[in-house]
Design a protein around this nucleic acid. Structure first.
Lengths: 264, 264
DNA sequence: GGGTATTTGTCCGTATGTATT
DNA sequence: AAATACATACGGACAAATACC
């Protein structure tokens, strides 16, 4: 089947991993030992390990060894909250259900020119200045997501000055905009894609730089009562530790669904 | 920065790709030529190419060369249809909006024992026999998704015999179950994860076997008017050609959003 | 169909560097 | 400081896939 020798070695090791003979977190035998075991050269053994690395089954640590990857207990985020609920509230709710502690850095606020994507969503000409509020978000100390919200700059001039403050808006941006500008968020659209992380993202999330772990990118466009987009939020999540739930229509209470149950 | 030579070579090639100097689909110079260009050994050049491969920037074709990956015009699927709408209808609607032609194989119907995940979602004991209906789905000839729906076996005995037929249920399974068993689908929960493809999945989707392109796995649990799960649908989509939309609350009409606009 | 040139894939051996313990 | 283990880099040989004549 898998003719080349390095694939056969990889297949053998893979079976040991998937059968539980090699446990998550456990160290494999060293390259020199595996060379003896399989009667191959060290480079061929390394090719086998690279193959398993690409499959995200093992990871190598210089000076230490090769280890079976530990599955991260995933962060499960319900993205279908109430339409009038902002991101922070929605996320906070979901996360605290698991008894986990989220932590957000204070937002980094900038006036930026809208990129084509953000401009199109906000129905503004490309390059229009917008308010950008960027946050890094952790759960129990683990890097969880990078989030940037974009608002039309006019919002700040029309009475929503807090958007320009580098503080969390305690009452939530949704409530704040409703109170100050009379903008009610009546709905939103989530657009979910997957791509390779940028170098900065890989660094923040402590992912390998080679892109083997991808990231979700979620574009959320929120609409006010007139059907006008009032905000675009871009959130990036590593795919190795995040899962999402959307409830559509009438769905009974969660029963604390366990991610462990979700395997084909 | 990226000290090792192969990373420097990779970085140089990457800039050529991202600057557009090397166009999608275009062939890179051969390994032998790059060896001359960079004054490195062929193996070092190959390491650089492997790095770019892992980042999904290039792909190699034996006997032909190395090519800049072409971005696939993505299939955008709206997963938040009406709660009373089945998968086939929802997907069909979305896809035809783009003037694309979906094609589903006839379902492969089996009685299987529920795995732990499916059993938990259907609230059945693990190992309970369930009806499994599996389809391969294409758009314009491109492998698009693999879908398996699971129903309690009792449904067939109670009057919904068509569930056991290896034919598409023309009126849609949702309408059929409403007509025969009085089960109205009032809502569903989508649970979205990302993982490496199995060998069979990589084969079907024509993905590399090394898992560098991941797949979405969506677990959809549908509920009837009593809040009881009536179906679990597991759908697998390659992440290199699929994106998803969820509309929550009041969202204005699509305006045919272009995926090209969605880049950070 | 067969043969040849081209290009990537596999496998080996060796030497040295770097990270960790 | 020494030992261990993976990372980088080189050079060489042959195999396999593809394209072209």
């Amino acid at each position: 089947m898998a003719n080349p020798m390095y694939r056969q070695i990889a297949e053998d090791l893979r079976e040991q991993i998937e059968s539980g003979q090699l446990q998550p977190g456990q160290q494999l035998r060293t390259e020199l030992e595996l060379r003896e075991t399989y009667g191959a050269s060290r480079n061929t053994v390394r090719d086998a390990i690279k193959w398993l690395t690409s499959l995200r089954l093992v990871e190598t640590r210089p000076g230490q060894g090769t280890f079976v990857v530990k599955k991260i207990d995933p962060f499960v985020t319900t993205l279908s909250g109430e339409p009038g609920t902002g991101e922070s509230v929605t996320y906070h709710f979901q996360v605290s259900r698991h008894g986990r502690k989220p932590f957000n850095t204070d937002p980094q606020v900038e006036i930026q020119r809208a990129t084509s994507g953000v401009a199109a969503e906000l129905r503004l000409p490309e390059g229009t200045p917008v308010i950008s509020r960027h946050q890094r978000r952790f759960i129990d100390g683990t890097p969880w997501s990078l989030q940037t919200s974009f608002y039309p700059r006019g919002f700040a001039l029309q009475g929503a000055e807090k958007l320009l403050n580098a503080d969390n808006i305690e009452e939530g941006a949704v409530q704040y905009l409703a109170a100050t500008l009379g903008l009610k968020q009546v709905g939103y659209r989530d657009w979910i894609t997957v791509r390779a992380p940028s170098a900065a993202e890989a660094d923040f999330f402590r992912l390998a730089q080679d892109g083997r772990v991808a990231v979700f990118e979620n574009f959320r466009t929120a609409f006010d009562q007139t059907g006008t987009p009032m905000r675009v939020t871009v959130t990036v999540f590593p795919t190795d530790r995040n899962q999402f739930i959307f409830d559509i229509g009438d769905v009974p209470e969660p029963q604390v669904p366990s991610p462990e149950d979700h395997k084909s």
